[in-house]
């Protein structure tokens, strides 16, 4: 009885469990409309498409849980794809070096975001908003408005292909494997000393500092992890969808929505990496559900908006008790 009640509380309480309930409900909806969806190939195709958002959600989770925002990820994903196309320019041999350059660029952007936020004490909302503008402008300045060059086949492999001829499912996409590996990494990372410091800095910065945690270093590292996740997502999205000037536009808001849908409190200190990634999966499943329902594409944002507000309002319902208030502020 108590176990059942505890389970009920976990699922309905608006915390981490709720997103899984939401995920099950959305999947049930998809199943009702299209029973064929859960056959191997189409499920794999869904996961392949969802992988970049899930990876971005893991990166954003670190930043949000430590009490910050990263609004620059969408622009960074776009920048990475454009950089890859321009530098590779169709040459297979350049694939790996360019990927390393992209990784360095992602780390660099994360480091700049983190240092401006922690050392110069600029609120992360402003830091990453500025970074968004800088990246958006700089990339178009560099390419003269429209992306040039093309990606190599090897570059597009992780986003498009996978292990073929697997019985039952057909193809296991590389994107799914990368997503699982990075997801597991993110969950394990939150169990380490670093993860606990990150959580503590989001929950109560002052207490964390007074207990000797290096809050600023941890927060900067979180931004770097977000930059790395944007790099990986850029490689996957570039491979999956190809190059265009619009890649990554508006992605930052979708990612933050996903993380918040996973029950991670803006302002930090609450929520798990697993739930954040499940939130991303729920958003992608929601888009699939819209497709199945043949909803006019233009109406999708409206439904998405209504669902986010409803989900967060539901989650906030019990947090109004003072004892459960978050104590840090999103900055």
């Amino acid at each position: 009885m108590t176990r059942a009640r505890r389970l009920g509380a976990a699922l309905l309480g608006g915390g981490t469990g709720t997103v899984f309930l939401l995920l099950v409900l959305i999947f049930a909806g998809i199943l009702a409309l299209n029973p064929g969806f859960f056959e191997g190939p189409s499920l794999m195709a869904f996961l392949k498409q969802a992988a970049p958002l899930v990876i971005l959600a893991a990166g954003q989770y670190f930043v949000i849980v430590s009490g910050n925002f990263d609004l620059s990820v969408g622009a960074l994903v776009g920048a990475q794809v454009v950089i890859a196309a321009r530098l590779i320019d169709g040459e297979e041999s350049r694939t790996v070096p360019v990927m390393l350059v992209m990784l360095a660029f992602g780390i660099g952007v994360g480091l700049v975001n983190g240092l401006i936020t922690t050392v110069l004490k600029v609120q992360s909302f402003i830091t990453t908003l500025g970074m968004l503008l800088v990246l958006y402008g700089a990339i178009r300045l560099w390419t003269g408005g429209a992306p040039t060059g093309s990606l190599s086949e090897a570059f597009r492999t992780p986003g498009r292909l996978g292990i073929t001829d697997v019985p039952l499912v057909g193809q296991i996409p590389w994107a799914l494997l990368i997503m699982l590996a990075l997801g597991a990494g993110a969950i394990l990372l939150m169990r380490t000393r670093f993860g606990r410091i990150l959580m503590a800095s989001g929950d109560n910065e002052l207490a964390a500092k007074l207990s000797g945690a290096r809050v600023d270093a941890a927060r900067t590292a979180a931004f770097v992890l977000s930059g790395v996740s944007a790099t990986v997502a850029g490689i996957l999205i570039g491979g999956f969808a190809g190059v265009s000037a619009q890649v990554g536009e508006g992605l930052e808001f979708t990612v933050i929505t996903a993380v918040v849908l996973g029950g991670v409190a803006l302002g930090g200190g609450r929520g798990t990496a697993l739930a954040a990634m499940a939130g991303a999966l729920a958003i992608e499943a929601l888009f699939t559900l819209f497709n199945q329902m043949a909803l006019p594409a233009t109406l999708r944002p409206a439904v998405q908006g209504a669902i986010i507000i409803a989900a967060v309002a539901y989650a906030a319902r019990r947090r109004t008790r003072p004892a459960l208030q978050t104590t840090a502020s999103p900055s």
Binding site: I308, I309, V312
Partner: peptide, 23 residues
């Protein structure tokens, strides 16, 4: 009243308006 974080709340209403306008 619903205690939704302002960032999410206004992002949500913005999306709702966007959907209405586009449709």
């Amino acid at each position: 009243f619903l205690k939704v974080n302002p960032f999410i709340a206004t992002l949500g209403t913005g999306l709702i308006l966007k959907g209405y306008l586009d449709t």
